[in-house]
Write a protein that binds this DNA or RNA. Structure first.
Lengths: 114, 114
DNA sequence: ATAATCGTCAACCAAATGGTTAAATATGGA
DNA sequence: TCCATATTTAACCATTTGGTTGACGATTAT
């Protein structure tokens, strides 16, 4: 079973898809316009957009014959939070702290006479 | 050409590898001990560790016959920063802001007489 | 010296990925 | 109605991915 975070990281792993997200930062875009700067078929871009959509990173809405792509930053936030919370745990990694202490104060050192 | 950030996001896309990273948060571990909780061959875990290593997310050091795996949180930070800076740009997305304004103040409204 | 442990490597496999081209489906405009 | 535009779908292809098993090299223990 593929979780949402699996889909988000997998989507972000491709440079074309990250570029698309950056483009959408500027403004909502039609599929054709998204495809324009890339040296790749429209069908390929359409697939990339499908992957971004399934990951929840963008949404697509059809108005008339053009389908508009819109950034959905909340989805990105989920993965970002995973990483940041990871950093939080890292900050309180007791073992690393203990190792640090053991280097500062070698365990066999005797302070009882000082 | 695969950039470091490609490798990092691809590495994070697999739940087994994310689990391994969480385990390494606790302490450095031998390959065999990393593999233990997983219902998967040692060789498979060895491959996952190789992918994490190439992404720079962990490092491996062989002491005697055991190879120790160690978390390298700096690498994660690169991808985290990509996402966060993305959020920064989003915060100053002028077009979205303009759209917000246009909803609050319909453009054909006439304030000249008030 | 022999045996057990730690880990990788090679060969293989099925499924997923990222691309192509060509045809099909809407929808909009003349 | 007929043509052009916008986008997806289908079929295909090469490569990558995530897993397996079995053999192997290196190290440690008996």
């Amino acid at each position: 079973m593929e979780t949402q975070i699996d889909l988000i990281f997998a989507a972000l792993a491709d440079p074309t898809r990250r570029d698309i997200l950056v483009m959408l930062l500027e403004d909502d875009m039609a599929v054709t316009d998204v495809a324009d700067p890339f040296d790749m078929s429209l069908a390929a871009i359409s697939k990339h957009l499908g992957i971004l959509t399934r990951a929840g990173l963008i949404s697509q809405e059809k108005r008339g014959r053009v389908k508009w792509c819109k950034l959905e930053p909340d989805a990105m936030r989920d993965a970002s939070i995973w990483m940041q919370s990871f950093g939080q745990f890292e900050a309180v990694n007791l073992d690393a702290f203990e190792e640090f202490l053991s280097k500062e104060l070698p365990p066999d050192q005797d302070f009882s006479q000082t």
